[in-house]
Computed example of a mutant assay.
Amino acid sequence: MKVIGITGGVGAGKTQILEYLNNRYGATVCQADEVAKKLQKKGTDCFERIVEHFGDGILDEKGELNRAGLAEIVFADKVELSVLNSIVHPLVKEEILKKITKEERKNTNLMIIEGALLIEDHYEEICDELWYIYVEDSIRKKRLKYARGYETKKIDEMFAAQLPKDMFMRHCDRVIDNSGVFEETKMQLDKIIADL
């Protein structure tokens, strides 16, 4: 089984790429963010540790984490972001390793792990390759404004919290340019899959 890590900045169009790899090649897709959401449900160890550090102010009326409120805190403060990451990410990686083992038992051919922090969290140790989805900043900004309705300030904070392009380039085995039309991206993906 090939395990591929896909990473890139927010607004790079990773979701569309994951859907394509799933539909076209039957890839099993695991998104680190979705794993994190499950681990942060009310009553879990991860949830308790987050509330212990950040306080009850980050809970919604149902007593669940207010993820938007938490994001506002951590994207504005690098120290708080690293605290949150140190709580959540080791648990996420542990869960993903369990998923990889499960897929290996099922004789899956291709498993894709998508996450923002694959480089920082050393996913090269558990992936055969890391792929960087590259999109020019100006295009990512437009996508985030129109598709998600984000304000410029929020986008700038998110960009500032992410690795610079050269770090992605240095640590990833392949770069997929998703700045143009998706047909061009598909051609790049098809070529890479044929090479695997």
Rank of each mutant, 00 (worst) to 15 (best):
V3P: 00
T7E: 01
G13T: 04
G13L: 04
K14E: 00
Q16Y: 11
I17A: 06
E19Y: 14
Y20H: 09
N22E: 12
N22P: 00
N22M: 11
Y25E: 03
G26Q: 06
V29L: 13
A32C: 14
D33I: 05
V35M: 09
V35W: 07
K37G: 07
K38M: 12
K38W: 06
K38A: 11
T44C: 08
I50F: 10
E52M: 14
F54A: 09
F54V: 05
I58R: 03
G63P: 00
N66Y: 05
G69F: 01
V74F: 07
F75I: 04
A76V: 08
V79F: 13
E80L: 14
E80N: 13
E80A: 14
S82F: 09
S82G: 04
V83G: 09
N85V: 10
H89D: 03
K93G: 03
E94G: 08
I100D: 00
T101G: 06
K102A: 11
N107H: 12
N109G: 14
N109T: 06
L110R: 07
M111T: 12
M111K: 07
M111E: 04
E114L: 05
L118A: 07
D121C: 11
H122Y: 14
E124K: 15
E124G: 08
E125W: 03
C127E: 01
C127S: 01
L130D: 02
I133R: 05
E136G: 04
D137T: 14
L144G: 01
Y146F: 15
A147M: 08
E151Q: 11
T152D: 12
K153Q: 08
D156Y: 09
E157M: 15
E157S: 12
Q162D: 04
M167K: 15
F168Y: 15
C172H: 02
R174G: 01
V175H: 06
D177P: 04
F182W: 05
E183I: 12
T185V: 09
K186W: 10
M187V: 15
M187N: 13
D190H: 08
I193L: 11
D195P: 00
D195F: 11
L196C: 09
